[in-house]
């Protein structure tokens, strides 16, 4: 597999801040993968997300998205057509008072022909399961539904990559599960590369790969199983390990013979049964 996003030694500092929000991060995102970026508040993960979408430009280092570097206005625009973004607050990213018109916003900006917009919008709304709400006003919808509308707006633009910047953080458990499984589906069925920024372990566990940010640096990356087996380090960064990993750790401490890399309930059940 080849990488679709390449970040080389990228730093970024906000004008008013003394310290850099992102410090010398290097990261490759493979085409078609589901990458989770973990980190607590202020770890620089949202800044990293905005760098991917060329909403901000690195103060240092190089970034390339689908082979394009954000050097001028046109290339930044080009990056945004290929790399969509879904934000945290469902209310603050909806532009229109009607679902399908909001969904069309990106395509209209891209100057797509009206009939083609209509076709793609209908398709995208059906894809996220919001077709029956096409004519509703967004403020009547639940948080999870609003996020699905936001995703439809991005999907309609047919991006190769979608960055989710803590898109489930403000949702209830049902909405959170909904939105996450939708992202997984888009990843598996359409081959869209997903960068999933979160601080929920249950979500990170299901990613292909996890990258952990702390104080602006990329401190760990690898398969979830590998990353979460470093329980002490993860905890030192103010993050939790998945509940089952935690339980496995406690049981191991008490002398039960379990592997350290258990992440889900099912795995735990299998391992416990094997002990008999």
């Amino acid at each position: 597999m080849s990488s679709i996003i390449s970040i080389q030694n990228v730093s970024f500092s906000y004008e008013e801040a003394e310290d850099s929000a992102v410090k010398g991060v290097s990261l490759e995102v493979e085409k078609g993968e589901f990458l989770a970026i973990l980190g607590r508040n202020g770890s620089g993960k949202s800044t990293l997300a905005k760098l991917l979408n060329a909403l901000i430009l690195p103060t240092d280092g190089a970034i390339s998205v689908d082979g394009i570097s954000p050097t001028d206005e046109d290339s930044r625009y080009e990056i945004r057509t290929r790399c969509g973004m879904v934000f945290q607050n469902p209310d603050n990213q909806i532009v229109s008072t009607i679902v399908e018109e909001d969904c069309a916003f990106g395509l209209e900006n891209m100057g797509v022909a009206p009939q083609e917009i209509r076709r793609r919008v209908d398709e995208a709304l059906a894809r996220v399961g919001m077709a029956e709400y096409a004519l509703s006003s967004p403020h009547m919808l639940s948080g999870g539904q609003k996020q699905r509308v936001a995703i439809a707006g991005v999907v309609a633009m047919r991006p190769k990559i979608i960055v989710f910047d803590e898109s489930t953080a403000m949702l209830d458990p049902v909405g959170r599960r909904d939105v996450f499984s939708l992202a997984r589906k888009l990843n598996r069925e359409e081959g869209i590369t997903i960068v999933w920024i979160t601080h929920f372990m249950e979500e990170a566990v299901q990613a292909d790969r996890v990258a952990v940010m702390d104080a602006g640096r990329l401190v760990m990356q690898g398969a979830p199983r590998e990353v979460f087996s470093h329980e002490a380090e993860i905890r030192a960064m103010g993050l939790d390990v998945p509940e089952m990993t935690q339980l496995a750790g406690i049981l191991r401490g008490a002398g039960v013979n379990l592997p350290a890399d258990i992440m889900t309930c099912d795995e735990m059940a299998v391992e416990l049964c094997r002990l008999k």
């Binding site: 909403l55 934000f87 395509l107 797509v112 009206p114 633009m157």
Partner: peptide, 24 residues
């Protein structure tokens, strides 16, 4: 909210009225 929305609009390729089409 205004800040967030501006960012979200930009992320969805908004560049002002130039070259914009309409669905309806």
């Amino acid at each position: 909210r205004a800040d967030d929305l501006a960012l979200a609009m930009e992320a969805r390729c908004y560049r002002g009225g130039k070259g914009r089409t309409r669905m309806n």
